[in-house]
């Protein structure tokens, strides 16, 4: 316990980094998920094919491979393109951007499926009722599709988020000092790996537990009008 207190600042900064990574990648993932779901349900064949390619490729490759590919390969590729075209100068991708970006894009593929299923679960007639009242498209989205989509999406969303939160641990391989990285470093330098991994265990559990409470509240909010079992 004394050891943990001694290293608490590392654990705290690591936890803050993990939370920042998780939230940043969540924002990216939700944006990609909405875009992907829209593309999959759109009338445009090109959009549907692009979205299918995205979800097929991303869901078919290990997260770790993609993270390393983006971090080690992305920068080289971007700069090669910049050199060749002269459109931009030297770019350096930070570890945070590479980590949050990659995890966001990966989970965007899962959110695509979650959102697509949720939109399809809304009875078509309710959308037709909106159309026949003369509601413009974006009003139908905001007032009819969105609130119901959130309700249908929440179980899958919660699941995706929990997996995503834990996936941030992978960024320690590209040297980002998240909770796992700092706990591991502290554990090695003190020779008490078990103690620090146990601390990480408890912190992760606290984070997922807190998320669970938050999602329950959201679920209650978006379940209005629905019989609760």
């Amino acid at each position: 316990m004394d050891l943990i207190l001694e290293y608490r600042s590392q654990l705290v900064t690591g936890t803050v980094m993990t939370i920042q990574l998780a939230l940043a990648s969540l924002v990216i993932a939700v944006a990609f998920g909405l875009l992907g779901a829209w593309a999959k349900l759109s009338g445009s064949r090109v959009a549907r094919r692009l979205a299918l390619g995205y979800t097929t490729i991303v869901r078919g490759i290990p997260d770790l491979v993609l993270i390393m590919l983006v971090f080690y390969g992305g920068q080289v590729t971007l700069n090669a393109i910049g050199d060749a075209t002269g459109l931009w100068g030297y770019i350096e991708i930070s570890q945070f951007v590479a980590g949050a970006g990659t995890i966001g894009v990966i989970f965007g593929a899962y959110f695509t499926e979650t959102f697509r299923g949720a939109i399809m679960a809304i009875p078509r007639g309710q959308i037709e009722a909106g159309i026949s009242c003369g509601m413009p498209r974006q009003l139908i989205f905001r007032h009819i599709i969105w609130p119901q989509m959130v309700r249908y999406a929440l179980p899958g969303f919660t699941n995706n988020w929990l997996v995503q939160l834990k996936t941030t641990a992978l960024v320690s391989v590209i040297g980002l000092q998240d909770l796992v990285y700092n706990a591991f470093t502290a554990g090695r330098s003190t020779g008490q790996l078990f103690t620090f991994m146990a601390a990480a265990f408890v912190i992760y559990l606290a984070l997922t537990g807190l998320s669970d409470i938050a999602f329950r509240a959201l679920n209650r909010h978006y379940s209005r009008g629905v019989e609760r079992a």
Partner: peptide, 22 residues
């Protein structure tokens, strides 16, 4: 079209009330 639809109210076989609204 939206303006015209607003003047042409429709009642459906399946009611189609918005289930998340009172």
């Amino acid at each position: 079209v939206e303006r015209m639809r607003a003047r042409l109210a429709m009642v459906f076989q399946g009611f189609n009330l918005w289930s998340h609204m009172t």
